[in-house]
Design a protein around this nucleic acid. Structure first.
Length: 768
DNA sequence: CGACGGGACGC
DNA sequence: CGACGGGACGC
């Protein structure tokens, strides 16, 4: 049909794959058909290009690709939900062969296709990942010139999903200027419900690059896209969009980062919320909650009635950033032109108030160089861009804590209890961290490993430097949890102790110290009550955290299953069946290989808690831009205004689990309490949680009055509860952990750095 | 506070 | 190769 002249790229070179993807998602076979990599034409140098993710090719950390994950639409190849759930009314534009009759096909938009490409150039690549029903190279109907993009129609969305995961940003077609973009066609989007995997992010450091932003968000899931809005001068405007592979990741990130994470050089914590539709029409009923029957618009009374108080769908997280400014990949090297950065740095905050004592305190493995600012480059820094920014970057640590303070005096019409939600959310962070490592080991989790690890090791550092301690104090709890969670996975040893160099104060030792602290001097009463309240008020949020975890666990399980299957079954399978072999153990793991067996058993134990409880619910609550609640099913892609009964039931189950656990703990603790000394305030806390229903919100705010003690409690709890957490693993257990974990953060935050330091100091290794 | 690029429907 | 169809954000 339309072959085209202009053969710009004479070389028969095929697709040049982005380097980093090489190991993981190359289908075993099919190589012959589509020689990739090979001696590829260097043309596809994606790095300098202005597009996002020019860096994706960097070898450093992003090892595993985005595959192995169910994507936002909740499909994991194979099992599928009865498609019938697909709404008929709107979704399928009736009549069309494409959309009628089951809506099977899925059309993808493919961008960055060389205008000279032919179908023969394109099709094979996509056939590697699914049944291609059609390839449509779009060209201007007048000039006949190709437009540089095409549409690929797959037999089903599962195939399409696979293709997206495998190809988006992963290949550069010969002659193209950047990697191909693979996503659902606009026209398809409305069939798949709201894309709630995209976040709007503001309060970013204007000097931050897309990469840096990605690194922050990558802790919570696979970041597919980062776009920073820039002014005419190409300068970032401090806000942008982060797109995840699915909404759970997005939610996790939002939970953790919003209102808490302060980028270095910034005074305000990040604003993170679901992005509103790009199109001028914000919330057309046709798109998202499209169903619900006639007269069921956002403005109908029904909806309003359905509206709920404020469920913190967009909570603020107790996230304690790994480090204010992620250590950038070493090789990212230097900006050639320093000149271009003239005026920069001006808007960045000075070091106001924060002691400039933590030069080397950031990743990089740099030993904390005492006091010197020497390695702090002057303003010109931006060239070195990566370490130097410290120059004007006040110790992120301090900043990271500040946000928490701020969150305590939260602006918006948020109930005073809200701040404590931080706690829970931090859980999701810790959880994420905990789960990441294992998953990465499995090669299933597309997160920058180095980041997670760094977070760990950094937290462990807790060196004598007081300044850093503040950070440590806030990080430790999370890591403690992470560690705890690692345990059941058998990962703790590797994951934590496997970083001997940096680990100056292993969690275990911390815990021990904490345990050794006399605990009865605590004015616990109020605290406990407050905690109790926290428990209550944060239930909703915890639900989310729990849900996320369960999701992740599920994914892990599924991954394992598929792995097993794939390893058992013949190697010659459909190119797109099953995940890639995950044998490669990244060198970055400090040579600590994790037994491949870790996953299965413990995980099952985790996600198969006491009894046959529903582990997940595909329904999740969302808030439309207008503020109306609606519900979206990640599997069926249905969305509706009314709360699905499934969800209600699910929540009830979770609630029950919670209560159950509480009771168990109550018993457990009553026993202990009867003992001579009250050694564990946290126990009492749990007790109180049960006994004290709802306290006046005011008290919550006062929580911060008792800073130093919190950490102890927290850690203690960690130790006391592990069994519960592991074996019950129910949402309740998780919740518990979360809650307790959070406190130290809040308190540390509330009282500022000194407190944190104090705490850290007080808990320093025995000798002192 | 802030809000969207890059290419978006051929035959 | 066809073309949903209610009811209209809010600065």
């Amino acid at each position: 049909m339309d072959r085209h002249r202009g053969d710009r790229f004479g070389d028969g070179g095929k697709y040049s794959r982005m380097p980093s993807r090489w190991p993981s998602d190359t289908p075993p076979n099919q190589h012959q058909r589509f020689p990739r990599g090979g001696g590829i034409s260097g043309s596809g140098e994606g790095f300098s290009g202005g597009r996002y993710h020019p860096y994706r090719g960097q070898p450093d950390y992003s090892s595993a690709g985005g595959q192995g994950f169910r994507d936002g639409h909740g499909d994991l190849g194979g099992h599928q939900m009865p498609m019938n759930a697909q709404k008929r009314g709107f979704a399928g534009r009736g009549g069309s062969p494409d959309y009628g009759e089951g809506n099977k096909f899925a059309k993808l938009f493919v961008g960055s296709v060389p205008k000279t490409a032919t179908e023969e150039d394109i099709r094979p690549l996509f056939e590697e990942h699914g049944d291609v029903v059609e390839v449509a190279l779009i060209k201007d109907w007048r000039t006949g010139q190709q437009q540089g993009f095409c549409f690929i129609k797959y037999a089903s969305s599962e195939h399409a999903d696979r293709a997206i995961r495998a190809l988006h940003n992963q290949f550069t077609l010969p002659g193209a200027t950047g990697p191909i973009q693979v996503k659902y066609a606009d026209a398809e989007r409305e069939r798949f419900g709201p894309a709630e995997d995209k976040l709007f992010v503001a309060s970013l450091n204007r000097r931050a690059t897309e990469k840096e932003v990605e690194e922050i968000f990558a802790l919570y899931g696979h970041v597919e896209d980062v776009y920073l809005i820039k002014d005419e001068m190409k300068q970032s405007r401090g806000c942008g969009f982060v797109k995840f592979s699915n909404r759970d990741m997005a939610l996790a990130a939002m939970n953790a980062l919003h209102g808490t994470y302060v980028m270095r050089g910034c005074e305000q914590p990040l604003i993170v919320r679901f992005a509103e539709p790009k199109r001028p029409r914000p919330f057309d009923q046709r798109n998202a909650p499209a169903f619900g029957g006639p007269g069921f618009g956002p403005h109908s009374d029904a909806v309003i009635l359905n509206r709920q108080p404020e469920k913190f769908d967009e909570p603020r997280g107790g996230h304690v950033p790994h480090k204010g400014w992620p250590p950038l990949s070493p090789q990212s090297g230097v900006l050639p032109s320093q000149s271009s950065t003239q005026g920069l740095g001006s808007q960045t905050v000075g070091m106001g108030g924060i002691p400039p004592t933590l030069p080397g305190s950031f990743g990089d493995g740099l030993p904390p160089s005492n006091g010197a600012l020497p390695n702090l480059a002057p303003i010109s820094s931006s060239s070195q861009s990566f370490n130097p920014p410290l120059a004007q970057a006040p110790p992120s640590i301090g900043q990271q804590i500040l946000p928490l303070q701020k969150s305590l005096q939260l602006p918006q019409n948020v109930p005073p209890a809200l701040p404590l939600h931080n706690a829970l959310i931090s859980f999701s962070h810790a959880q994420t961290q905990a789960l990441q490592a294992p998953m990465q080991q499995l090669g299933q989790f597309p997160l920058p490993q180095s980041i997670a690890l760094n977070s760990f090791s950094q937290a462990q550092q807790v060196p004598g430097l007081s300044g850093q301690l503040s950070a440590s104090s806030s990080l430790t709890p999370q890591n403690a949890t992470a560690a705890a969670l690692h345990n059941p996975l058998g990962l703790q040893q590797q994951g934590l102790t496997g970083v001997p160099n940096q680990q100056q104060l292993p969690i275990s030792s911390i815990s021990q110290h904490l345990l050794q602290q006399p605990g009865h001097q605590l004015p616990t009463q109020m605290l406990l009550q407050q905690q109790a309240q926290t428990l209550q008020s944060s239930y909703q949020t915890s639900q989310q955290a729990i849900f996320q975890i369960q999701q992740q666990l599920q994914m892990m399980q599924q991954s394992n299953i598929s792995q097993q299957q794939s390893s058992q079954s013949a190697k010659q399978q459909s190119p797109w069946s099953g995940p890639p072999a995950t044998t490669t153990t990244p060198a970055s793991m400090h040579g600590t290989a994790i037994p491949s067996t870790i996953s299965a058993a413990p995980l099952h134990a985790l996600s198969a808690p006491s009894g046959a409880v529903t582990s997940t619910c595909n329904w999740t609550e969302h808030t439309s831009p207008e503020g109306f609640k609606y519900y979206y099913n990640s599997v069926t892609r249905e969305s509706k205004w009314e709360k699905p009964e499934e969800l209600t039931v699910f929540e009830q189950q979770q609630q029950q689990k919670l209560l159950l656990l509480q009771q168990q703990q109550l018993l457990l603790q009553q026993q202990k309490i009867s003992a001579p000394q009250l050694k564990s305030p946290s126990e009492t806390a749990s007790q109180m949680q049960v006994q004290t229903p709802v306290q006046s919100v005011q008290q919550v705010a006062q929580t911060q009055v008792q800073p130093q003690i919190q950490p102890r409690q927290q850690t203690q709890l960690q130790i006391l509860q592990p069994s519960l957490v592991y074996h019950q693993a129910s949402g309740a257990a998780s919740h518990q952990t979360v809650q307790d974990i959070s406190n130290p953060q809040l308190h540390g935050a509330g009282s500022g750095i000194q407190v944190s330091q104090e705490w850290a100091w007080k808990n320093k290794p025995a000798g002192s």
